[in-house]
């Protein structure tokens, strides 16, 4: 009932625009000039709400992202591409008399396509389905090993020895052909769990967001996406990706209550950024 009160006069489009501008203001950038321009434009639109429905605002944001990042095309993270596509979509939707409706179509497609493509990469990867990627990540990647050592699944000594093995492989001359990593008991099971859990979740989200809306099962598409955002971004320190997914989720959901849930996820991503990644 409290949530119903919150959603009483909720303007979904305005909320989506505000969240998008906030995210773009907070996001990191390769280039200090891009970051500076983006902060000025987005803050202006946040302070002067009428600017949020002006086409030129979103065209400018799209151009700053697209032109500014083209030099770093193979260096920028994938969520930055979503920022470019989303700002273009908002610009185009403002030409219509049903902005909310067209934003919904664009957001749904972007979520469905990005998850489908991610699923296809994993299917065709030489080292995903055999568990290699997640086993490697559990044994060597600082982010996941911190999480695992917090739960005493892998010790700091083992992590250190594995990092030294990789360091030796990279810096020794002549280049050794291979180095053996230490694999504690139980890590393989966890790696397999992440491997199959991850790809199954992506497949479910992709399917529910791309299937025709007339299929009743698509009504439940928000729930696997909620779960994905909550779980994955605890471990993967890509709060910006979780944030843009929350915004796209907000834009495409049919339920006003789910708009609030996506807003909470957007806020949760900021908490992850500050608390989890600084203290873990």
């Amino acid at each position: 009932m409290f949530l119903d009160k919150l959603t009483d006069n909720l303007d979904k489009t305005k909320t989506v625009f505000t969240a998008t501008l906030l995210l773009f203001t907070l996001s990191n950038s390769y280039d200090i000039y891009i970051k500076g321009l983006m902060i000025v434009v987005c803050m202006a639109a946040l302070l002067i709400p009428k600017l949020q429905t002006v086409k030129a605002t979103w065209l400018l944001i799209f151009l700053i992202f697209a032109v500014g990042n083209i030099r770093h095309y193979l260096e920028i993270d994938n969520h930055k591409f979503l920022y470019i596509y989303w700002s273009l979509a908002v610009f185009l939707c403002l030409f219509t008399d049903n902005v909310e409706g067209y934003l919904k179509i664009n957001a749904k497609l972007m979520i469905g396509l990005s998850f489908s493509i991610a699923f296809i990469w994993k299917l065709f990867s030489e080292d995903y389905l055999n568990g290699s990627f997640f086993l490697w990540t559990c044994l060597t990647d600082g982010r996941l090993t911190k999480f695992l050592s917090f739960f005493h699944i892998i010790s700091k000594d083992v992590i250190e020895q594995n990092k030294n093995a990789i360091h030796y492989l990279v810096y020794a001359a002549p280049t050794p052909y291979y180095k053996q990593l230490i694999q504690p008991h139980g890590v393989n099971f966890i790696a397999k769990f992440f491997t199959y859990g991850g790809i199954i979740m992506e497949a479910i989200v992709a399917a529910l967001f791309l299937l025709p809306q007339k299929l009743s099962i698509t009504r439940y598409r928000d729930y696997p996406l909620f779960l994905f955002i909550i779980i994955v971004y605890i471990i993967a320190p890509v709060w910006e990706f979780g944030s843009i997914l929350s915004i796209l989720g907000m834009a495409q959901t049919d339920s006003k209550r789910n708009v609030i849930y996506y807003m909470m996820l957007f806020l949760l991503m900021q908490l992850y950024r500050i608390i989890l990644f600084h203290f873990l």
Binding site: Y73, E75, N78, A118, W121, K122, S125, D127, F133, G198
Partner: peptide
């Protein structure tokens, strides 16, 4: 990178 969404796959 590069907009392929291939992160965490390899």
């Amino acid at each position: 990178k590069g907009g392929g969404f291939g992160m965490f796959s390899t």
